[in-house]
Design a protein around this nucleic acid. Structure first.
Lengths: 228, 228
DNA sequence: TTCATAGTTCGATCGTAACCGAAGCATCGC
DNA sequence: GCGATGCTTCGGTTACGATCGAACTATGAA
């Protein structure tokens, strides 16, 4: 019972939904504050604080104080690989999920995935961008074409500015309600931001769903048509 | 929260100590019965049964009925790799363990590790066998020498019989109370069995500790001396 | 100084899951 | 048929940990 490395301890740390979500969010590589992580986990800051303390004590997280903020990151590369490998494993047996997708239809339609658009609308957007030749699927990755760059500039996305960041411009993110890829990366984030700025959609208070206004809905569907 | 593969579910499955131990035991690749796994987990068969059902429902275990036995194995290679990777990760941060070894001194001294002797006595036995030239350490593995074979025959171990089994004769097993290797494999099992048969020691009812009689203790220490 | 924001600690509640005893099936050997 | 063994199911207990409100600390802004 008490022999072998303590995989139970690590399993238990990952085994709580709130903690698992925090870890998954941190897999993106960006440092997040305790409050942000509380939002990711769908819990209050107090609860998040105790979770984060446990994760840190368990060696899964590192903490960096900056002003009155506390930025959390995965402790090291090994943790990231562990989480990734578990996600890959879990993905291989989707039947594992108790709830095979977001419960609420609104979440299935459009929701925020860390910082970009996911759900039916997220998948549709990427499909449309690929169909129009704005984005090319290169192997596992995605690349913005010249046509895509000019098209996006037209709708107010400053692609050059996005390129200056270290973060990849386009990343493919598996959508777990649709089981298809949607657009992540700084471009995915910028697109979602622009929808919010334009008033096409808004975040809901306590949920991760994105609510489109009737007008925003129309504009979105026009901008990202699906042929066939 | 409800997006991404459900690593929380898998984490929770692995996160229970009893289940973790069962999984770790099955990493050896051999099929084990529910009763054996209950012993590994240090729980009753009833409890083990519910654990095993959960693990099977979670896709981590496969079950094969054979007569009145139920043999459990890891569901597939992917599960084995997942467990291995978690063990490797956990080993890399040994400080994770809440209890750095078995609590009770008796467990530290001698205990059963699946089917062979572990703890202080297990480590001593292997050390002595190596020192006397009965066993050679070859890289990560262990090999019985000719001298060892004849020596063991003298104390009533039928090595030829053991060889006929598919199971490796000698295996090195990391001892987590001593942090050193002890002898596993069919030979390790046979040696422990012989101690029990000779009445040198006995298993305790509800614990995994092995209790040596005063006479057995004397014989054991004489048979496996440590010089220096 | 005072107020606001970010976060932790405390205390208490509550739900879930691990656990075992006892009873119930199923299979084997006789 | 019988009893013995291996395992599961049921019922009830218990313990742990996730959760949040409230109070507290720390940093920053005004």
């Amino acid at each position: 019972m008490k022999e072998g490395p303590d995989i139970a301890q690590i399993g238990a740390l990952i085994g709580d939904p709130a903690r698992a979500n925090m870890l998954a969010a941190l897999t993106g590589g960006r440092a997040l504050t305790a409050t942000e992580l509380a939002g990711v986990g769908g819990i209050t800051v107090q609860t998040a604080s105790t979770h984060l303390a446990k994760l840190e004590a368990g060696g899964l997280l590192a903490q960096r104080k900056q002003g009155r903020h506390r930025y959390f990151t995965l402790a090291d590369e090994a943790v990231a690989r562990l989480i990734e490998s578990m996600m890959g494993f879990a993905a291989g047996r989707g039947h594992l999920r108790h709830q095979p997708g977001p419960k609420e239809p609104a979440l299935r339609k459009a929701r925020i995935c860390y910082d970009h658009l996911a759900g039916d609308y997220g998948v549709r957007m990427l499909d449309s961008l690929i169909a129009s030749g704005s984005i090319e699927a290169v192997g596992e990755g995605l690349a913005l074409t010249e046509k895509g760059e000019s098209d996006l500039e037209c709708i107010g996305i400053d692609v050059r500015d996005l390129r200056s960041s270290r973060r990849p411009l386009c990343r493919s993110c598996l959508d777990w309600s649709e089981r298809r890829a949607h657009l992540a990366g700084s471009l995915g984030k910028a697109l979602l931001s622009s929808f919010l700025d334009k008033g096409w959609a808004r975040r809901t208070a306590e949920s991760r769903s994105i609510l489109f206004s009737p007008e925003g809905d129309r504009q979105f569907l026009k901008l990202f048509p699906i042929d066939g």
